[in-house]
Design a protein around this nucleic acid. Sequence first.
DNA 1: GATTCTCAGTCATCATACAACTGCTGTCGT
DNA 2: ACGACAGCAGTTGTATGATGACTGAGAATC
Lengths: 244, 244
Amino acid sequence: MVRIRPLSPSRKLTRELTEQLAAQIKHGRLAPGARLPTEQELTRAAKVSRTVVREAVAALRAEGLVVTRQGVGAFVSEDVQRAPFRIDPDTLRSLDDILGIMELRLGVEVESAGLAAERASRAQIKGIGAALDAIREATEAGLSAVEEDLGFHLSIAESTGNFQFVKFLQFIGGYLIPRHTVSGLPERMGGRMKYFAMLQEEHRRIFEAIRDRKPGAAREAMRAHLTGSLERYQGLAAEQRKAG
Amino acid sequence: MVRIRPLSPSRKLTRELTEQLAAQIKHGRLAPGARLPTEQELTRAAKVSRTVVREAVAALRAEGLVVTRQGVGAFVSEDVQRAPFRIDPDTLRSLDDILGIMELRLGVEVESAGLAAERASRAQIKGIGAALDAIREATEAGLSAVEEDLGFHLSIAESTGNFQFVKFLQFIGGYLIPRHTVSGLPERMGGRMKYFAMLQEEHRRIFEAIRDRKPGAAREAMRAHLTGSLERYQGLAAEQRKAG
DNA sequence: GATTCTCAGTCATCATACAACTGCTGTCGT
DNA sequence: ACGACAGCAGTTGTATGATGACTGAGAATC
């Protein structure tokens, strides 16, 4: 067997330059407000064409790290903290990372349930109830009901009247759902149906607290629900560590 | 069917095309996995040069909305949910938007305080105390202590042992701080010193609850603290609406 | 039937040119 | 002396043509 290793990585120049500049900014070598080298200087320094430089700067601009002013130059954004809150999928490999995200989610969702109990309209409460039914129907059909589960939580977030909760939950949901399905948790909880029944009971308590306009109870029910699944994952993580 | 309308050179072409494409993706007109029009087609449809098209695509790529494959084409990212959670400063104009962000923050910080009370190390508790002192020193020097205030909250977030809390708070802080300084709230609260004394008293309660390992009390104290400032802003917003 | 060759389509990069904008400077009119 | 202003150099924004690299699929070959 002949072994050939890949030669010239032929890495994308634009991506490379973007990362170089982003690193310099985030590490403070390029302070906020500081001016970036001109395009001409960058082309000479990086030995690339202006196209590459401009695409790299465009990427940084899209991320909010720099602002450009025609005829003047490109500058590091004054408030780098306005850079978007993003979770790098590459750094999100271990179960511990997932747990970190879930804890963050817990805080947001507890508040979401509380606000929903205070503010939800009749129609919105009806919507939460409908989402609950959708979960039941899906599980009875033997499906995992992952989508419906997220839908339930989203309908609560919508009932806060604060769209930021919806946006945040959609964002977080993208990271949690996939793992949820492959975790194989149900089997550990004494059977699939029993597991889903327990989840649904937790859901029902949340719904009823919101329906009955009890913010405190809604927060507690949501906290119990999410703490529960958090602990189930923590147990899984502990075992994985032991096994690995 | 993707519909790209020609761009008017009134604004920056790249930015405009980027937003058009991003809107189509987020609105579902361009489904995940779907292929974008080729560069040539985009130049014709938008009546711009390839430079503009390539920079726009580079921006979308930086945001994680599309992936490009040399020799094949550009495709909408399969998992658009991985798009970063960002708050567009342009849509963050009204005081109501700020309040929405503050509510989100409240949920996270309440949980942060609770977890800190459970997990903070001796050194971390010491750090929170030091942050408290820093606030006092700054206010006594007649400064606004905005940075120090954020530092206090960040030191609590660090004590959770979950770096996501720190990241999130840094992110959110960037949006809240500026308004904090220009709001002119202190004058409404019966004098600057009285206002700061009240804040500091709230801070102290949070600190003591964490130090004494009382998660429930820490959550309560943090909730009281943030609910307080939230309500102060809500009052301001109501007045502004009335005046405007 | 399998392998290799060829080719058209596409993105990646390069090089050049011009347009639009900004900040400064030196000139001119008063 | 001094302000208005035209011009200039520098920078980013846009346009264009050319070439390289890569992919997928069909044609050609064995």
